[in-house]
Design a protein around this nucleic acid. Sequence first.
DNA 1: TTAGGGTTAG
Length: 584
Amino acid sequence: MLDKCITLLQSYGLSSLKKLKQVHAFSIRHGVSITNPEMGKHLVFYLVSLPPPPPPPMSYARKIFSAIEKPINVFIWNTLIRGYNETGDSVSALSLYREMRVSGFVEPDTHTYPFLLKAVAKMADVRLGETIHSVVIRSGFGSLIFAQNSLLHLYSNCGDVGNAYKVFDEMPVKDLVAWNSVINGFAENGKPNEALGLYSEMGSKGIKPDGFTIVGLLSACAKIGALALGKRVHVYMIKVGLTGNLHSNNVLLDFYSRCGRVAEARTLFSEMVDKNSVSWTSLIVGLAVNGFGKEAIELFKDMESKEGLLPCEITFVGILYACSHCGMVDEGFEYFRRMREEYKIEPRIEHFGCMVDLLARAGEVKKAYEYITKMPMQPNVVIWRTLLGACTVHGDSDLAELARIKILQLEPNHSGDYVLLSNMYASEQRWSDVQKIRRQMLEDGVRKVPGHSLVEVGNRVHEFLMGDKSHPQSELIYAKLKEMSDRLRLEGYVPQIANVYVDVEEEEKESALVYHSEKIAIAFMLISTPERSPIRVVKNLRVCADCHMAIKLVSKVYGREIVVRDRSRFHHFKDGSCSCRDYW
DNA sequence: TTAGGGTTAG
């Protein structure tokens, strides 16, 4: 009978306390007492291993709250606001604060405002934030460091770095939390260089960084592809014993993939003791965008077999992206189905975008268009642009025109679309259409977003624009460009003039191509770094077909591995070929 | 018996 009871315990295992109690009652009925050491051992083991019960719902707390005799003291108000914050219900947290003010019996205290500001920060509404800011000032709690830090965070969460910095600047005492918030605020709002600058300022003030600082720093390094700098941060993490910090490791993982260092990312992942679904998702996405679609899908299968890890919507963006870039159309549709049915994740517009890309990339532009018309939501510019891009690659000019009209309605004056379309016309030698587009661009006052490339030598990040001659070593760089062009021609390189959108003389077109920022950056790296060492370039736009071809040959002729991080993906060039297999 | 800062896509 003892064996029977233990088998029962094992099979019900960790399902619930109620089940365990049933087995206990069953054992007593059949003469197996708790005094039996074996029975006791198993029962204690399963009891202490039970998952923690979910917290009671806020509605219940609210009911009790309403029943409490008036006036309700400030601690209870604060606690309920905190409860709403912790369950992610910022709207109720804010309205509870308003209720407290209206009731008029009690004044907010030093705890109330940080709670309130946290709720407002989550809502990411600058105007509301400004209103609450003045409320805090009027209340007289403006000098409280908790309130100041909350305000700083509130502004950076709304994307208003100007005001965030103003709050920070005016703080008479800046503690580690303040530094971390302002650094992270800059890093997250498209100002990674400023974030790094503030970090060195922090160091000069003698403030020691912690795990939060690491997160802000590494995400700044990841954005500009500053590998050497990020590696120093990694070394620092080892030195001060932050390698066990899950958040820092997750960002480090993302940092390595965004610098094209997939091997390092994989090693780190395998060494991480603590992993959550963000870690798994980061590596899946990292593998996918670096062109390792098959490996990304293998990793996802691994993730599915692990207990307690649930893929989220971002994981599926990675998976669908992997399928579309590997041409795995059927698999993509299967994952899309499983995402909805098994994981109950409602697809968002990004997922539909991946599906359109999946079809369009595979050359099924007409099917992609049909898919768009059947989507349960209004297609956005990103979707139409995906279709436009695929139409130019696969030469469907009718559908391209249609996509462009849709884009114009949704977002006029976006230079990339004019460029895409004019490139397509140019490749078909339709010069009058090219001229028309170009005229329209001028009329609409649209200017091309200048392309720029970033490269890192030592601890410095160098930036090159298209046709840039401002670098101190400019002469040497242009001499190298000339040599590159000569050596590439010997290898059979023919400039692909279709990528220049103006109908000019052949020779002029060729020279315009030579000046693309990635070529200048690569020439600079060839003269600034040791032979055979790898080159990494971070670009703000998509790499053009001509540069792609040229870089493939450079990798072969100069024996260099070249990793280019594009606006949307990675190209790993080696021995004359690219990891994207010319499909991007 | 209450307070501020963290990463993955687009």
